[in-house]
Design a protein around this nucleic acid. Structure first.
Lengths: 197, 197
DNA sequence: CAATTATTAGAGCAGTCACTCCATCAATGC
DNA sequence: GCATTGATGGAGTGACTGCTCTAATAATTG
């Protein structure tokens, strides 16, 4: 046998492609993004592209999975805290900051456009589930301590928090002068209004 | 000259195509919807299709314009009322009812996916503007009477109401058990929490 | 009826794009 | 050094799709 791959190099190259794809997807949507354009931005040939990802769709799914993983890793950051409402609002604030990344809103819209593909729908449901699993314990805690309203079951409260950040991204993508920076405070305030009894 | 067209017949045929397209766009997204499939559903040949709409994109834009017109017509329905908050919440409730139309969420996602096309972006901005123009007078009135918070300028309040109904549609499209029927009450309550001082 | 024009269907075309294939290169183990 | 195998680029391909073209038909007017 010869040459066992350098996994770090492989992973780095993968990330270069993913980064380029994120840009092109955000700019042109999923179908509008040609593999040729992604290759150009990543400075690779199409042969290399398909060496790393079997299909264009697999590349999209890989990006989505990356986001879901990031969501899951969020859990650790809040370990040890006891102020449920504060943690939830911090998480919402975090979402607002992510929305400030210029490619984010466009990418989310692009994904929405191919939600009819079962694989994409499944990936998004997985993301929703991850988000919910991260939020749920804090919602439950807040309901126990009375910080958070109890007229809605915890799972539905998490859905509504997702709704807020998702709608936030949509507005940023559509309205010229609706910016993450300026509206962040209102987002947090709206979340608080929603969460408190 | 011979044969002046029957405009009613023409319009009816147009609407058949639009209706078919709405279904196919909602099911498969914009790019995923082939003109052939739309023709099949509308029971017409492709020649007829392009007789009514010069391009597939024009068909999409026609649908969007129809929605914007409908938004504008809403104005009349609330003439004479003086309870600004009540009117705004009725409008939000109305949005929730529209979200219950099965094709609506999918269609909105489909449109999101092609927002990178300038014509679509323009149409959506036009829709946002129409929505805002309908809401603005009531927000102003409510702020004057003290029913509605005054810490945000009227235009931004309308953006946030749009955000809520838009996020609502997104959740319905993504989450299996997030239904317009069940969540309508929460939407109205959330809008109230947002609007009141 | 004849002339004119809108309407309709659908075969075919031109262009595009995801993906394949192959030749070359680079790195490792023996 | 040489064999082996992964990595890479890019020309080529097959399938698909938006749209055009043509020919036939239906409706209307004088």
């Amino acid at each position: 046998m010869a040459r066992t791959v350098d996994p770090a190099r492989h992973e780095a190259r993968r990330l270069v492609i993913i980064d380029a794809a994120l840009t092109v997807f955000a700019e042109r949507g999923y179908d509008g993004a040609t593999t040729a354009e992604i290759c150009r931005r990543a400075r690779i040939g199409s042969g290399t592209f398909f060496h790393y990802f079997p299909t264009k769709l697999d590349l999209l799914l890989a990006i989505l999975r990356l986001g879901t993983d990031e969501t899951r890793e969020q859990t650790e950051r809040y370990a040890g805290r006891t102020d449920a409402l504060g943690v939830l609002l911090d998480m919402v604030a975090n979402g607002a900051d992510e929305a400030a990344e210029p490619r984010m809103p466009g990418f989310v819209q692009a994904v929405a456009g191919v939600m009819h593909l079962p694989e994409v729908a499944a990936a998004l449901e997985e993301d929703t589930r991850a988000q919910r699993d991260v939020l749920l314990p804090w919602v439950r805690l807040g309901q126990r301590t009375g910080e958070i309203r109890t007229d809605l079951p915890p799972a539905r409260i998490t859905s509504w928090l997702y709704l807020l950040t998702d709608g936030f991204l949509g507005r940023i993508a559509t309205e010229e002068d609706f910016t993450a920076q300026e509206e962040k405070a209102t987002l947090i305030d709206t979340a608080r209004r929603f969460l408190t009894p």
